[in-house]
């Protein structure tokens, strides 16, 4: 018993564990702040959008009076606008913690959480592979270009990645869709799978899915890889200038070994970069979904924003942010595993 406690205490003192705990606490705080912003915004904005939304339901919904009244009562309960704000806030936090994100009114009576979880898998299925592939491809190409700075490969890659890095995913998506689907008729015009098949684990569905997947995937990969390539190229160039490289050179280390070292050192900031850019990547890919009429969260966000479906806006953003936080945490874990200083407990930061 005592011994177990000591082991436990010892574990808590290890820098890696301390670091992990701090990370978790920090992410928890940011999530809390974000939820609070979600709660406060509609109540702070002049004209009280929530009250206005409720007032407008009567006019905007073309439905039976009973339905309108049902929707109104439901939303009234959820927003509790007649209660003092601190009660509203505590109720809101409680609902968020329980995973009850409220009821959509543009898709009444469907639950927001249910809607988000129907659409989210499509988004993640597109986003995660595309992000990983672009990160790996961009960094590899960038490292090679930086290693042979000024060479033919570098001179070709640099302008291309520069332009790609400043190209919005969704605009590249428009260009690709126009070129390959509209003009060359090589790929479908949109959607996530052929309209005549139902999602299932059949060869037909999977083939159709991949066929529809190609262009959206490529849009994100190409546009995102440009930025990674540029970043990595600069990091490698700086790294090659540092003392240890001269030292290794004087020891007669092979090119391959040296490139390995340089790559290892330069890749760490890129992992941090990945964590920092997850939000931007997500934002870009949500809009890309719109271009391809992909049935992901982008569609849900767009629908909620244009119809002022506030319960859906709040719920979708809460889930998206939670997803980002989890992804961020995973990237941080990866960082800890590959950063030799943290792994060996050399630093506590």
């Amino acid at each position: 018993m005592e011994g177990e406690k000591a082991v436990y205490r010892g574990l808590l003192k290890r820098p890696v564990v301390k670091l992990l705990i701090r990370k978790v606490v920090f992410l928890f705080i940011t999530y809390f702040v974000f939820i609070t912003i979600i709660f406060a915004l509609p109540r702070l904005v002049p004209g009280n959008p929530l009250a206005e939304m409720l007032a407008n339901i009567l006019q905007t919904m073309q439905a039976t009076p009973e339905l309108v009244r049902a929707v109104e009562r439901r939303l009234m309960e959820e927003f509790g606008l007649h209660k003092p704000w601190h009660e509203q806030y505590i109720e809101f936090l409680g609902r968020m913690l329980r995973g009850d994100l409220g009821t959509s009114y543009s898709l009444y009576p469907r639950k927001v959480s249910e809607l988000v979880f129907t659409y989210l898998p499509w988004t993640l299925g597109l986003l995660i592979p595309a992000t990983l592939v672009s990160w790996i491809a961009g960094n590899t190409l960038g490292a090679l270009a930086g290693y042979r700075r000024g060479g033919r490969f570098d001179n070709a890659l640099l302008p291309v990645s520069l332009i790609l890095s400043q190209t919005p995913y969704y605009w590249l998506a428009m260009i690709l869709l126009y070129t390959f689907s509209v003009k060359l008729r090589l790929f479908p015009l949109g959607g996530a799978y052929p309209s005549h098949v139902v999602p299932s684990f059949t060869l037909e569905f999977i083939a159709g899915y991949l066929y529809h997947y190609t262009l959206p995937f490529l849009s994100i990969v190409l546009a995102a890889a440009g930025g990674w390539a540029i970043g990595m190229r600069v990091l490698v160039i700086y790294e090659l200038r540092s003392d240890y490289v001269d030292f290794a050179d004087s020891l007669g280390l092979s090119d391959r070994k040296l490139l390995q070292y340089v790559f290892k050192n330069s890749v760490l900031p890129q992992v941090t970069g990945l964590a920092l850019n997850l939000g931007t990547i997500l934002g870009g890919s949500l809009i890309t979904e719109l271009v391809f009429s992909y049935p992901g969260t982008g569609y849900l966000v767009f629908r909620a924003l244009t119809r002022l479906d506030y319960p859906m806006i709040q719920g979708t953003f809460a889930i998206l942010f939670l997803t980002l936080i989890l992804a961020n945490f995973l990237v941080d874990l990866v960082y800890m595993v590959i950063d030799p200083r943290i792994r060996t407990g050399y630093i506590g930061e």
């Binding site: 920090f26 979600i38 915004l41 206005e52 939000g279 934002g283 980002l324």
Partner: peptide, 21 residues
């Protein structure tokens, strides 16, 4: 600053913009 940095700015912008008619 660190907390705001951790909030994805694009989501925050969309969220704020949504409440203005």
């Amino acid at each position: 600053t660190n907390v705001v940095l951790a909030l994805p700015s694009i989501l925050l912008m969309l969220l704020i913009a949504a409440y203005f008619k």
